[in-house]
Design a protein around this nucleic acid. Structure first.
Lengths: 110, 110
DNA sequence: TGGTATAGTATACAAAAAGATACTATAGGA
DNA sequence: TCCTATAGTATCTTTTTGTATACTATACCA
């Protein structure tokens, strides 16, 4: 049942999806499509510019999202999910479904 | 398309599943069944005792795992997934599948 | 001429997470 | 009598994350 290589893969997937902000950013891009930097900033409540930039750069690095710069002033930059990144959808959906069930579970305990 | 409550749920799921160690611990418990503390420590490469204890406590707190103490010396403590925790399986499986695909994707880039 | 909007960068600082290491209790065995 | 095994704590240091704030360039508009 060789365990180690299996586990590494989950870790890899997590390394990319995880963090306080990435899943929310990904969900927005998946559900609402291409977004400008400022739109994302508005939709992700509480995120700072620095953090948003950092998360976007990391996601771009992993080919999960794509960055498109329009040479205008003021600048316009659009972010979108890549085909490859769309493969993460089942994970996010599974999380979302479980999250809803978990919210109920917690309520019952109170 | 009310976005906020949706996002919160994913965050909730993440708060529980996420961290460097939790998914690996959960996968082991799901795949290999009940484990003693020392077995887990052996199977999770690189984890420290402190971290393992902390993660297990947090998972227990959320009803994802169960802790069973046998009053012996030296002590024996067994951990297992709860029925409720088993609901996380689809997420872990989705992550695992994506992780495998991602490993391939990365290789092709080199 | 000065203000606005956009997508950032730079810097300093605070807080949280993780790691390293040493320590504990105690039954049973050599 | 001392060593081993188990499941932890306790304490300190390092690393990682996150926050706050100020700053940049420049076309367009009043």
């Amino acid at each position: 049942m060789e365990m180690q290589p299996e586990l590494c893969r989950v870790e890899d997937a997590l390394g990319i999806i995880v963090g306080k902000w990435k899943p929310i950013i990904l969900l927005i891009l998946l559900q609402a499509g291409t977004q400008r930097f400022s739109e994302l900033k508005r939709r992700v409540p509480g995120i700072t510019q620095k953090m948003l930039t950092k998360q976007l750069r990391e996601l771009e690095e992993e080919d999960i999202i794509e960055r498109n710069v329009y040479p205008q002033v003021p600048p316009k930059v659009e972010y979108s999910i890549t085909d490859y990144g769309r493969g993460l959808e089942p994970i996010l959906v599974a999380m979302h479904e479980w999250g809803a069930a978990h919210a109920l579970h917690k309520m019952k305990k109170m």
